[in-house]
Nucleic acid binder design. Structure first.
Lengths: 193, 193
DNA sequence: TTAACAGTTCATTTTATCTTGAACTCAACT
DNA sequence: AGTTGAGTTCAAGATAAAATGAACTGTTAA
């Protein structure tokens, strides 16, 4: 085992250090260094993303925008978080697709700037749709297929009756879960914020 | 292609094959081969587990028990799924901790047998607690810490006011999410099945 | 006491997933 | 046309997560 290897906990920070770095070239970005509070917030979102099964960088990007007083551009995101352009590009796209961030109007028309979606409903809505609704539906199809197959080829299935019962039970679950999602959205949407 | 993708397609099956193996030594196991329907059901749960961010083997084990007319023992689980004893052991423990499976009484008192938890509420309850409630609470602590730090050291934080607002917003989210969980459980619990 | 079994633990290996880096496209300037 | 900057794509490298395998801890029964 290589003695040199900083596993896991690689939080974003780097509070001290850096007497070397690339100094501001006066690129007119909002700021070129994150404050402690900002970094802490980013870490929170980063952790949340991982919990949701999303890549860490997704959380970082959202967190950065969330902790930023003004819209940020692709370039700034990549620079502030110190992630590659590739990651930034993919992350931003995913977040847009999820509806978690959106483009904002700014003076600089050369590059697109982004702001975070602040409504909890819309924020979670996207995640719920892709990570819950989708799988739920595709799962339902599989179940339906099994059910059908079990229905006709009843011959060579030893415990056909038992299995039919179980399949039905799954269908009930699915029904419940499906009903639950809209309910959830409603609840999340109450007094938006 | 969008966020979602087809988990490692390595489905469980293996319909033909295996002409080698250790033949039954008359160990009195319920059966030593899975039917197509059973394998299909196992695959469904396996996929669901992955979606929930749990190891695939977890889903397989639960699925197997779900598709089995009688309680199964450690040994049988490992054999039927063709997973190592280590995986089986860890998987079973995790499922027990989640409250998704439970020991059952059987004649054979040498080994413990298991049956699945069939109540959707109890089933999802465990998952929600560890995968949602837990992270939610620990996240709340982090936020609280940030909030406190921001409160006093207000001096060197450029956008203190703005960040305070954002932090408050997160707190609101957290409150909502916390309220939502019991609601969810209630809903899932209606007319148990 | 020993043999045989039931189950656990954990270092390794394997597999799946993220991130990077470098090549590329597309516009807008010059 | 030529250059510069914005952003995308994707193979390859780096990481993280899960499965394996083998050694280990009981426990029961001969």
């Amino acid at each position: 085992m290589p003695p040199d290897q900083q596993a896991g906990s690689e939080r974003l920070s780097d509070p001290g250090a850096s007497s070397k770095g690339r100094e501001p070239r006066g690129t007119a970005s909002p700021r070129n260094r994150l404050s402690d509070t900002q970094m802490a917030i980013i870490d929170v979102f980063s952790g949340a993303a991982v919990q949701l099964g999303l890549p860490k960088s997704i959380g970082q990007i959202y967190g950065l925008l969330y902790a930023s007083p003004e819209p940020l551009a692709f370039r700034e995101i990549s620079a502030l978080l110190e992630i590659s352009a590739g990651s930034a590009s993919q992350g931003i796209r995913l977040l847009r697709d999820l509806g978690a961030i959106k483009p904002a109007e700014v003076a600089d028309n050369r590059s697109e700037h982004f702001v975070p979606e602040l409504s909890l409903r819309r924020l979670l809505g996207g995640v719920l749709k892709t990570r819950v609704q989708g799988p739920l539906d595709s799962g339902a199809e599989e179940i339906e297929a099994i059910s059908a197959r079990l229905g006709k080829a009843g011959a060579n299935e030893p415990d056909a009756a038992f299995l039919k019962g179980r399949i039905d039970s799954i269908k009930t679950w699915h029904r419940k879960a499906t009903l639950m999602l809209p309910l959830l959205r409603t609840f999340l949407g109450s007094q938006d914020t």
